[in-house]
């Protein structure tokens, strides 16, 4: 049977995505895999302390021009939409940071003067935390483009297991790269105006992708009722509410897991997984 892929997203940062992703994955242990796709700021490993056994640099192809073959025709600069290659005087300059690796310059060059070389965008590390299969990506600091690294990370999905994806915040291209093709999206929010506004954006992104989703309200008693009203109006189920508890905030601050320090939460997270399975299979 194909394992389910659940992405955990939020719109707003700091609502508890990593808390949900880690506490959902750990009780499932060897039946699950956790992919931390928040490659700009990966944090899940801080809670799992995995032993990494595999580490690989991820590169994207960027042009390299053989000046001996180049006749300075400028076709490469003409096709490039990202100003990553230009002809100035008697030389061709490339700007690898601007390159989107579309390969257009290579294709268009009549002299076959352009080949591609790898530019490092980050690192993927894989290991186990007890029985849990864990993979994360770390974007090189100074690198702007995270989607290629997230897409590479997604190729590590093990279809025999339940895959849980910790997505980055926001609603733009990195989030889409993390959520696309998943079977269910858990939207983690808080019942404040910021939480609600960003939840609406995230729900909009999920709708575009056509994925079933559910809401988790974190610090559910600190704020107002508008997130629940929104969930009702949209017909999105609220699958879990976590009231504010200073103990939980402190457990998180120390890099510990709620399911390990407060065992009563283990059943709740297993129950959450059951609810998701039921909804995803029904849809």
């Amino acid at each position: 049977m194909k394992g389910m892929i659940i992405s955990v997203a939020s719109g707003k940062g700091g609502t508890g995505k990593t808390t949900i992703a880690t506490n959902l994955a750990v009780p499932l242990s060897e039946k699950a895999q956790l992919l931390d796709c928040d490659v700009e700021q990966p944090n899940a490993h801080l809670f799992l302390n995995p032993t990494f056994t595999h580490s690989v640099k991820v590169t994207v192809p960027v042009p390299h021009v053989d000046e001996k073959k180049c006749n300075l025709c400028g076709k490469c600069a003409e096709i490039c939409q990202f100003k990553a290659i230009v002809v100035i005087g008697k030389s061709v300059l490339t700007f690898p940071d601007m390159c989107h690796s579309c390969g257009g310059c290579v294709e268009v060059c009549p002299e076959k003067a352009i080949t591609e070389r790898g530019r490092e965008v980050g690192l993927i590390e894989r290991g186990y935390a007890d029985g849990l299969d864990f993979v994360h990506g770390r974007l090189r600091v100074g690198e702007a483009m995270s989607p290629p690294l997230i897409k590479k990370l997604r190729t590590y999905q093990d279809t025999s297991k339940a895959t849980i994806i910790d997505a980055p915040p926001g609603t733009s291209c990195p989030v889409i790269a993390a959520m696309k093709g998943t079977d269910f999206v858990l939207l983690v929010t808080e019942p404040t105006p910021f939480g609600l506004y960003d939840l609406k954006l995230a729900a909009g992104a999920v709708r575009i992708l056509g994925i079933p989703c559910g809401i988790i309200i974190n610090r559910s008693d600190l704020g107002d009722n508008r997130v629940k009203e929104f969930a009702d109006e949209e017909g999105i189920p609220v699958l879990l509410e976590i009231p504010f508890d200073r103990r939980i905030a402190e457990i998180y601050s120390r890099g510990e897991l709620i399911v390990e320090v407060m065992p009563e939460w283990k059943e709740r997270f297993l129950g959450l997984y059951e609810s998701i399975t039921r909804i995803a299979n029904r849809d």
């Binding site: 940062g13 700091g14 100074g142 702007a144 483009m145 995270s146």
Partner: peptide
């Protein structure tokens, strides 16, 4: 500013 260290933060 935005969160993270990627394109919008740069």
């Amino acid at each position: 500013g935005p969160p993270g260290v990627g394109c919008p933060v740069i």
